[in-house]
């Protein structure tokens, strides 16, 4: 078992950025180990050429209605089939909702080792070892993977994406066994147009206890809109029913690592910081200069968020236009 396999994800006719990032890691492994890398494309198979050009020697595709929407049973069967085709020893995928679900079931199907939400790969270690956050990022764990194959999901926004090469991959259509499908997707409910999820956004504007109530999120949303950012929230705001749970950032919410995190009226409790402490830049707006977030932020504004945030928005509109 020597091969490398990337399981691709597409969104609305494009290759998802986490797949490009997984391809980047796969190419690095492929170069150092002198083994070829293959990719599996389950949806929008017209993208096979574009995917192959990221450096893959082979792109496996599948056809059929049962691959139209993510389904853990049919996708696991197809991924296991592809893994056997290329004798995969390392399988990589983005740690998206689908990626985390599929890699989990696949790891059990292949009786392999699983490492999820990985932020670093020690490319030269043999067998490959990885680094992943634990305790919601309060600590980092270096993890050895003696089991085989190794199924690894990569945290979005961390790995360098592969750039297109002139290479042309061989496209091979697979015909995996029909899995018995017992859990069926009845309906996909998309997020409202223009509403970004905190796990996918490059910028997050977040509100905490300091926003004071559901209406207080108005200024947060206004600023987020100008920056094309997602709206986040602290546990205090969610537990007060000011905003739905899907916005919660922290140890019992979502763990995020955007380019910019703007924390408004958030004190920065340990469990919240655990969820956003790996953001590249942090801006904090808080009345209390002694709030824990204030000495962890790259730029801390001491002041009333209801006065500061609207001005911030106006100033940003000026500069962005």
């Amino acid at each position: 078992m020597t091969g490398i396999l990337v399981i691709a994800e597409t969104r609305n006719g494009t290759i998802h950025k986490t797949t490009r990032e997984a391809a980047g890691a796969a190419m690095e492994l492929s170069r150092r180990r002198s083994v070829p890398a293959a990719a599996l494309l389950l949806t929008e198979t017209q993208l096979a050429g574009e995917l192959g050009a990221l450096g893959f020697s082979t792109v496996y595709t599948v056809e059929g209605e049962r691959y139209g929407k993510y389904n853990s049973e049919s996708y696991t069967a197809a991924a296991a089939h592809a893994a056997r085709q290329c004798s995969a020893n390392i399988i990589l995928m983005g740690a998206t909702g689908m990626g985390r679900d599929l890699t989990a079931r696949l790891a059990a199907r292949l009786n392999g080792a699983l490492a999820s939400d990985v932020i670093r790969i020690h490319y030269d270690s043999d067998p490959v070892s990885v680094v992943r956050p634990v305790y919601s990022g309060k600590l980092l764990a270096e993890v050895e993977l003696p089991g085989s194959p190794r199924i690894i999901s990569l945290r979005p926004n961390v790995f360098e994406p592969a750039s297109p090469s002139g290479q042309q991959a061989q496209v091979v259509r697979l015909d995996p066994d029909t899995a018995s499908i017992r859990a069926q997707v009845k309906q996909a409910i998309q997020a409202a147009q223009g509403v970004l999820d905190v796990t996918e956004a490059d910028i997050i504007v977040s509100g905490g206890r300091g926003v004071g109530g559901p209406e207080g999120f108005g200024v947060i949303r206004d600023l987020a809109q100008v920056l094309n950012a997602a709206v986040g929230a602290s546990r205090a705001a969610v537990d007060s029913d000011w905003i739905p749970y899907k916005h919660q950032v922290g140890q019992t919410g979502k763990v995020v690592s955007p380019v910019l995190y703007i924390a408004c009226g958030i004190s920065g409790a340990i469990q919240h910081f655990a969820g956003m402490g790996s953001s590249r830049f942090i801006i904090a707006v808080n009345k209390d200069p002694d709030a824990p977030i204030m000495n962890k932020a790259d730029f801390a504004i001491v002041g009333d968020l209801f006065k500061v945030v609207p001005v911030l928005k106006e100033e940003l509109i000026k500069i962005l236009n």
Binding site: V134, V143, D298, A300
Partner: peptide
């Protein structure tokens, strides 16, 4: 199949710039 070799603390975040004063001025600084 997998085991933690070593746990470490992530690099601590350093305090950055702190500004206070009129909202207009602090927002422009930001």
């Amino acid at each position: 199949r997998s085991r933690v070799k070593i746990l470490s603390s992530p690099p601590a975040r350093q305090a950055g710039r702190v500004v206070k004063g009129e909202p207009d001025a602090t927002a422009r600084d930001a």
